[in-house]
Design a protein around this nucleic acid. Structure first.
Lengths: 134, 134
DNA sequence: GTAATTCCTCTAGCGACTAGAGGTTCAAGG
DNA sequence: CCTTGAACCTCTAGTCGCTAGAGGAATTAC
């Protein structure tokens, strides 16, 4: 049996976060001691490891909830969740790339001379110069 | 003079969001009508446009606050903020790229057959298989 | 003059935690 | 057995950037 601190050390998830996960119904302590402290089995430890890893991959707690509730033989749904997340990641990468391009353009707009207002500020304000749609 | 709705239509920032920006000290109405409704000048409209654009670029309200409080001649600080944000964007892109690579690896781990547990679930749980550091 | 629309303030909620107060239990050493 | 100190407990509130809704007042168009 592991204490909440043991779980934290093993998985790298902070103690208050573990309690938060319990609160939102992602994990449960297998037992409590006489004095009301949480005790976890190895399965509990592994479940938290799974959650940690999925979080690191950027999955929402909702998506993780769906994943842990899944029938392990349900390949279709598992794939669907993973595919959806992959699409989401690609979407975010695309948007970041556009942001990067525009920020570079904006920064190039300032020649660094000191006798006028900085074009960066102007460029930030000027929607019309902007290449991508808002 | 523009009403809050006019500002919203011109900038694409929703009305409650404009009020929120006022609450956190980013903008102010130039006047109020007899009946307590906000009225904005053209300068107010432009300020909101600036904020909108900066938000679209992913800057935090804190960063925007710093930007609008800036001396327009202060090129150094303006550049510093923009550079910092650019670095942040690149950092996020890098992390997303690693996530993408690992998700693809995980998805490849499942051959799609129906007579065992899905390797995707196992791969999610198995920290050891994971290429990048958590 | 009335009806539709817009506006007002205020409070509470979202996700995923984090921080702190104030108190209790556990494990180890003497 | 007893004390100490670390780890634990619950509870509340704060973070960011909004968004939603209640309940009511002002403005605008016809």
């Amino acid at each position: 049996m592991f204490s909440i601190g043991d779980l934290s050390r093993h998985t790298g998830v902070k103690v208050p976060t573990i309690r938060y996960y319990e609160q939102v119904g992602l994990i449960e302590a297998d037992e409590r001691t006489e004095g009301n402290q949480r005790r976890y089995s190895r399965a509990g430890l592994e479940r938290l490891g799974f959650i940690r890893h999925a979080r690191d991959l950027g999955l929402s707690l909702d998506a993780i909830r769906a994943l842990v509730a899944l029938d392990p033989a349900d390949h279709a749904t598992t794939h669907a969740i993973a595919r959806e997340h992959l699409a989401d990641i690609r979407d975010r990468m695309g948007r970041l790339a556009r942001l990067e391009a525009e920020l570079k353009r904006i920064m190039a707009a300032c020649d660094g001379s000191h006798d006028h207002e900085c074009n960066i500020l102007e460029a930030f304000a000027d929607h019309g110069q902007c290449a991508h749609e808002h």
